[in-house]
Design a protein around this nucleic acid. Structure first.
Lengths: 259, 259
DNA sequence: GCTTGACCTTGACGCTGCGTCAACCCTCCA
DNA sequence: TGGAGGGTTGACGCAGCGTCAAGGTCAAGC
């Protein structure tokens, strides 16, 4: 007769594992000797090894009992199911691995390469780091919901940077948010340019977001994010409202311009 | 300001997950409103999304906090470590998948094909199912500890089945254990053949187990297993002892034969 | 003002497969 | 006879939430 540690050693498992199998009813409790020790027969070793064979194959303990008793076809069906689950799990882990490979490639925020390019272009034209960081956070938000759409939008966004008016706008914004003073004249100038750009876009019908339902887009959230990062954005919003436009991330016409 | 469910929806996670992140200190608790509800800023959405990006890449929650604060080289090192762990996990699952594929291939006990062949040969020469089952359990025990050694031993075992004496022995054993009567004459005959075979093996020095330390092999366990399955095995052991041999799975000379 | 349903709160258990104390008993050997 | 090295049960811990339970709150319709 064997003690629990001998049994465990023969089967190549830990004593704790054996007791666990008893607890969940997978391995029957053996007789006890006079002092209360469990005493195992040689057959228990075989039972335990068979349990481990299935467990090592990835079968959940909760199913092993049934599988050991099942007939061939039931067994085969169960095996197939387990294999499917293992396959799913492997697929999930490999997806994770792809993700992490992207992170390793220096793309610490997991933004699409197109967005990274866009942010770099902003830096090239002299946009300050704070404003770039704001843009980045906005695109993180957008990418979370429409990773594919964002990639489609980027070429257009990058092309827009050729517009001298837009470049001027970004430079003014950089100047505003880089300084700690509240130079309202600059804010007014920014609002004027922004209104002008919005007007052009509105006339040319350029505002085109593809098939994304516009209510679905978190423009309010983007505006709120901007205001959070710097309260002077609120002033900009107010100035835009005076000029007949609502919002910032997505300008919406409030009323026809009086002029 | 956002409620917890709005925050969760923006980031594509469950409310429960957000609360969990608060609990483990991964996401800071926001201010509460008058009624005790959590109220989130837009920045929280960005924070949460960044957490999920890392979590989806397989980073354990317990490390995400540090990673978000880490510098580039620390971050890269951590990423590499995570990737290694993912690789290990995938390897383990794929090993499981191979195992289960073997099970699916009809090999329900995960015995090496050589052993299956051996058991089939036993059936071919007329060995009863009970005796084959006993052999099978023995080989399960052996395979658990020396899967590779067992495969090497099998060709020799199969070759031995050409010996008419051995065939006769197996047939007698089958007859004994298939009947419920206690025909002692058959047991005596079996013991005589076994002793004769042992003598031959002893003389030719054939007993060769390779480099396996012999104390390491569970011969006592195998004998015990046999006795458990049928108590008449005990009588066989006694008869062998009378003939100067100890054990059954591994015969050991007790004394030089008097003849 | 009342109901209703949707949303918020904290607290706690469940899941998987054991690892790891804790606190105590049993056996064997020098 | 004392200590080392077994054994026993009981319980917490782990990862990442899901899922009640037992309420309090809010907005809307009657």
């Amino acid at each position: 007769m064997l003690t629990i540690s001998q049994l465990a050693a023969y089967a190549g498992v830990t004593v704790r594992a054996v007791r666990h199998y008893h607890q969940i009813g997978l391995l029957p409790e053996p007789e006890r000797d006079a002092s209360g020790y469990r005493r195992y027969s040689a057959g228990a070793v075989v039972s335990l090894i068979r349990i481990r064979i299935l467990a090592n194959a990835g079968v959940p303990l909760s199913q092993i009992g049934q599988m050991l008793e099942a007939d061939a076809s039931t067994f085969a069906a169960a095996v197939e199911e387990i294999d499917r689950q293992l396959g799913d799990e492997i697929a999930r882990l490999e997806a994770s691995r792809k993700q992490i490979a992207q992170l390793a490639a220096g793309d610490r925020l997991a933004l699409a390469p197109e967005v990274i390019t866009y942010l770099d272009r902003l830096r090239d034209i002299g946009v300050s780091e704070r404003v770039v960081a704001g843009e980045r956070d906005s695109w993180i938000l957008m990418s979370a919901r429409w990773p594919d759409r964002v990639r489609e939008w980027m070429p257009g966004k990058i092309a827009q940077l050729d517009d001298p008016q837009l470049v001027r706008l970004y430079r003014i914004l950089s100047e505003i948010f880089e300084s700690d003073t509240g130079d309202d004249a600059l804010l007014v100038e920014a609002a004027d340019i922004l209104a002008s750009l919005a007007e052009q876009a509105y006339r040319s019908g350029e505002i085109d977001l593809g098939e994304v339902a516009q209510d679905d887009l978190p423009f309010d959230l983007l505006d709120a994010l901007a205001v959070e990062s710097d309260s002077r954005v609120q002033r900009l919003l107010d100035l835009m409202r005076e000029r007949g436009w609502d919002g910032l991330a997505r300008l919406e016409r409030l009323a026809e311009p009086s002029t």
